[in-house]
Each structure stands twice: as C-alpha cells, then as structure tokens.
Design a protein around this nucleic acid. Structure first.
Lengths: 200, 200, 200, 200
DNA sequence: GATGAATGAGTATTCATTCAT
DNA sequence: GATGAATGAATACTCATTCAT
C-alpha cells in the first residue's frame, strides 16, 4: 500500500490531538461550561470532525483523563524503583496535584465502569499508588495506619482547594500538599477513625 | 388576633422550608446541575411557587449557604470561649465538614460581592475562623506557620474528598479531617512554601 | 337595612375607581407591558381584589376604554348643537387625540362584539362622529367626499404618530392633527380612491 | 468549483429567507407578540435553526426592517432625479405605506442606536426623505411650513390606520394617504403649531 | 473524510388567573 | 370581602448530537 493511505491517517491523528489539546485549554480557561463548538473551533475544525473522533463529549473527557492518568501511572511505575520511597511518593503526589488537568484523577475515581479502557487504567493507577504508599510506609516515611485508598483520595485535595480561587498565587496548592503530606507522616500521628473502606 | 390570620403565612413558611430542604437534597444528589423544576417537584410544589420565594435560582443557593454558614459562624463564636483552644478548632472543623451541605463554605469563598448579606456573613465567618486558629496557635495546638486563610481553604477538603463517592461509609470524611488536622499540628512540621496569600 | 350595607358598596366603588386610575397611570408610564400585579399594587390593593372587580385583564381594559370613549361621545353630543360645525369637529378631534388614553378609540375600533356594553357604546360613538362630520360637511368646512368612517379612522393617527417618540414635545400631535384636518378641508381637495368602506 | 460546494450554503440561504418571509407573515397576522416557535414552524424549520440564522429575535426584526427600509431608501434616491418633485414624493410615500411590512419605518424611528447598521441606514433614509420633501417644496407641490421630520412621521399613518381592520379593502390605506397628502399641499394651508421638533 | 446546518429537548423565568385562609 | 400564595402554560435561548452535501 502506497503512502497515500498513510496520509489521511496522519491527518486523523493530528486532528485528534488538536481536539484534545484544544479541549484541555478550553477546560482550563472556562471550567466545565465548555461547549463542543468551542473546542472544535479552537482546534480549527468543524463540529462534525469532533464527533468523528469522539462519539460523545464524555468520551473526549475520558480520553483526556486517560492520557493524563496514564502519564502519571508511568511516572509512578518509574518512581517505584527510586531508592528514597518517601521522596518518591511526595514527588508523585506533587506531579499529580500540579498538572493543569488535576481533575483527571477525580474523574477517574468517580467514573463508572462503562469505559473499559479507563477501568483498566484505573486498576493500574490504583495499584501503582498503593505500591508507592506501601514502600513509603516500609521506609518509615508514612504512618502505617494510612491506606493506598486514603492517598488516592487525598491526592486531589490540594489542586481542588485552590481551584477557581481568584487572585491566588499559581503554586498555592504546594502549600496544602505540604500540610497534607505532613499529616501523612508518622510524627505525632493520632489515631484515625474508620479504616475499613477500600477503593479499587 | 387568632391563629387563623397567621395561617396563610405559616403555609408559606412551610413551603419555603420545603424548597430549601428539597434543594439541599437535590444538590447533594446531583451536584450543581439541579434544575428549578426538580427542586419544586421534590418539594411537592409548582415551579411558580419556587419563584415566589426566591427571585432567582442563585438566590435560593445564597439562602441555603447563608443559613448554613451563619450556623457555623455562631458555633465558632461560641467555641471562642472554650478553654481548650485546640479542641475548639477541631470541633469547629468537624462541624464544618460534617454537615450535609458542606458546599456552603466553598460557595461562600467563591461568591462575588454581589450579595451584600452574604458578603457581610463572609467577613464574620472569616474573622471567627481566624480567631479560632489564632487561639489554637497560642495554645500550641496548631503550628505557627499556618494562617487563618489556610484553615479556611483546607476546611472544605474532607467533605469534598468523599463527595459523590459510591459505597463510601458516611463518616469517611472524619478520617481525612484527622489526617489534615494532624498536618496542622506542630509535631514534625516541615517548612511550608508561599505564605503570602490571604483571603478575606 | 342599616348603613352597614352601604359601607362596603362605597368601598367597592372606591376600589374599582382606584384600580381604573392605577391602570391608566401604569399604562401611561409603561405601555402595554403592565402586569395585573403592578396595577393592584399601585392601587394599594391585592391581586385578588383586582379579579373581584374585573374578571379579566381585558375586562379592565374594556372598562377604561368605555369610560374614556363615553366621555368623548358625550362631548360629541354636546358639540352637535354648536353653531360652528367645522370648529365643533375640530374641537372634538382635538379632544379625542389629546387625551392620555388616546388608545381608547383604537381599541374600540378593533374590539370584537364580545363586550355588549362596548358594542353599544361604539354605535353611539360612531353615530355621533358621523353626525358631526355630516354637519361639518353641510357647513362647507369639510370636503364632501369624506365619510364618517374616514374621520373615525383618521382620528387616532395624530396621537399614534407621536406615541413612544423620545424627546418629542408633548403637544406635537397637534401639528399632525392640523395637517390631517387641512387634508379634510375642501380647499384644493383631490379625488379620493375607494370610498365604499364603512365602519360600524 | 462545481455547484455541489455551494449547495449547503444555498440551502442555508433558502432557510434564512424562509424565516424572514415567515416572520413577516406572522408579524402581519399577529402583531408584535409573535413567538420564535411560531416563526420557525411556519418556515417549516426547527427552533434551533432560527437561532442559527439570527442570534436574537430582535436581530431578525432588525434584518426585516433593514431589508425593507433599504429598498425604500434606494427608491427614494432614484426618485430624487425625477423631474416632477411632487409626484416623486407621492410615489415614494405610496411605496412606503403600501408594503406589507410598513412597520419597518416605525421600527426604525423608535429603535435605539444599539444596531449600527440600522443607525446608518436610518441616517440615509432620513436624509433621502428630507431631500425629497425639500425638492417638493421648491417645486411648490408641498407647503413650506412642513419639515422632513413631519413627513417621516406622517408616512406611517396610512398603513397603521388600516392595520388589523377587519373586512377593510386591501387598498384602503391609499385613501388616507391621499387625505394626508392633501394636507401637505399648499392649497388652503392653515398655520401649524410647534415646529421646533426635528428627528434624526 | 470533513463540514457546518438542522434539530429539539431542556433551562430559567414571567404572569394571568384561581383559591384557601 | 380582601388577600396574596400557588399554579403552570408560555417564552427566548443553548447545546449535544445527527446528517445531507
């Protein structure tokens, strides 16, 4: 098969990426009220093209989340071989909270099983986090009564706290990640209630 | 004057309360996308009745928030005279996070000055929290590098973390409040970044 | 029967008049977009009272028109005995166009037969105008090819022309009544088309 | 480029025209209370299609008025070079009053400056009428104490007079234009009151 | 494959009219 | 009799999704 069959595919990939990038920018600027038309226009494409790539607006959302969480999961995997397990977890959480689309993990947590690709990724992401937490606990950096589920849930808090906060410095979330991470440390840890809940 | 002259007004109050209650339930269930029609139906009333009581959907929201935050502000004021300042702050945060409509404080933080009653309440609430934090710091229960703004922002996190989480035990938020509160303690506190932001 | 039975009736009349007066003021201020609530409030009454006096908003409108047109019809009757028939017609048209509620005649013209009182009044009003026109023609003040119907229809024009005209002097309508009246005079009158239409 | 690339646009234009036509019919039948839904239905289209073509109900109105008045303004310009200035003005006024959508000029007079295209057209239209009047006065066909503003305002009267008049012959308005035009003639003209008002 | 026109269900809000008190 | 609370049909406008070109 000649090059001609590849050309449209290359175009198609480019369009898909353009839509994803445009959507991220739009979401970052306008929050949840973004319209499909806005995304398509920003990508320089027609609405019809949008729906050729994503059957649904939600599917685009899932694709964004997938790309984002996949990246984090890979990072987590890499950090599993770090020698300083406590620093590894902190690095990981910093990346998780710091990215533009922090909403990714939240979305992942709350999305139903309807999307198989996402469900699979979720398993991978969760187990990675749990492994990171486990190693950090073994190294004494994190208190032992904390579960992987706890960290997964607490992970989104710093970014959410500063979301939509007018006039806040852009790295304010680092401050709240620091507080929460201090809360995860063994120093002066008090007894925690209700441990029986596990996610994933 | 017999009760009969007040009766119609009593009905009206009952309806107003029904609308507020219905709205809280709907918000809790469906998030921010609740429709006026749903609220009215849930309250067993017609749409028109909704608008007799609240000129606008936003006005209802403001009313819910006001009632909720006002209660918390009063509680905070009472706790200011408690002898154990650390316990007082923890009690306060527990109340804040534990109520159904935890979104109230978040809403308060992000609302513009357009509603004077709410703006005034915000001042009162903020200064109460700051006073509680200050006293807790003086008593040594809270680390000194934390500001009132920090506590105001962190306050909403526990409830938000568990929001919309399927199958979670109803008091799971207490666990995350405990972690965050441990992070606010002086024990093993690490240096915090970017302190120059102040809210209110 | 003692005085007590008269008191409510006096009140009733007072309320009805208050509603009529309030409605005229509201219409004058806000045009056609007046609401029943506005009228009732301006009259210092409840909406329920409004509907006790007028089964329908339209019925109130009809009542206003009736009062207004009735006054004009009486004036017309009086002017029928004036010695100067031309001046009588001009006086009459001036009154018709000059009143606040000039819309009355228009309303009368366009209203269906559904309101018997109004239908009867219409007959009286029309015949009065026709008589005034006829006398003016006999006296030579008005051209002979003009019908009563013509005058009835032209009557509303001056007031309508200046209606809703921003910054116009309040008596601008007199200017256009003068032009139209000059057009009704015999001097230099040209042939008129299509005379076969008769109203009333 | 074959026709096929233009075909979708042709459809769109057809729909736009259908909406304009439907709107004119609806306005003519029901006055100002026409609903967007009615217009769309009459055009055989969905509501959404209406808003694809006109961002707002008012914008459609403006489009109708613009098309109509623009045509009249062009006619007026052409008539400016006619040799019989009096006949030219009468022709012009006949066209103005005779069109279905006579409301255009009225709308133009009363519309605020919010629409720049319309504001510009208004200037053009006004100056054209004023020029026609001026020429007619110079030729002795029109009395000298009449202003362009007077003619602009009087212009709408014939059509308005017969508007919504049941059972009236369709050209009845010509009769009232004739009367008014006779009133504009110098023959037997009486003194006019209050000349100091100027529009445009 | 790409485009953008068409669609129509959905949303907040208004207001004449009814009815319980 | 008076009141004003309740009602719900009606209205302009939005937006995800479909489909003809």
């Amino acid at each position: 098969m000649p090059i001609s069959t590849r050309a449209p595919r290359a175009d198609s990939v480019r369009n898909r990426d353009a839509l994803l990038a445009a959507a991220e920018l739009e979401f970052a600027e306008k929050g949840q009220d973004v319209t499909v038309a806005d995304i398509a226009t920003r990508a320089g494409l027609g609405k019809g093209t949008f729906f050729r790539h994503f059957a649904t607006k939600d599917e685009l959302l899932a694709a964004i989340v997938h790309g984002y969480v996949d990246e984090l999961a890979r990072l987590g995997q890499r950090l599993l071989s770090s020698s300083d397990a406590g620093a590894a977890l902190l690095n990981f959480l910093t990346e998780c909270a710091g990215q533009r689309q922090h909403g990714g993990v939240e979305f992942l947590i709350r999305t139903s099983e309807s999307n198989p690709a996402l469900a699979e990724l979720r398993e991978k992401f969760y187990s990675t986090v749990k492994a990171l937490v486990s190693r950090a606990q073994d190294s004494g950096a994190i208190r032992p009564d904390i579960t992987g589920t706890d960290v997964i849930l607490l992970m989104c808090a710093p970014a959410h706290i500063v979301e939509n906060l007018p006039d806040a410095p852009p790295d304010l979330w680092k401050r709240y990640l620091a507080v929460i991470f201090d809360g995860l440390r063994p120093d002066g840890a008090r007894q925690l209630p209700s441990a029986e809940f596990g996610i994933g």
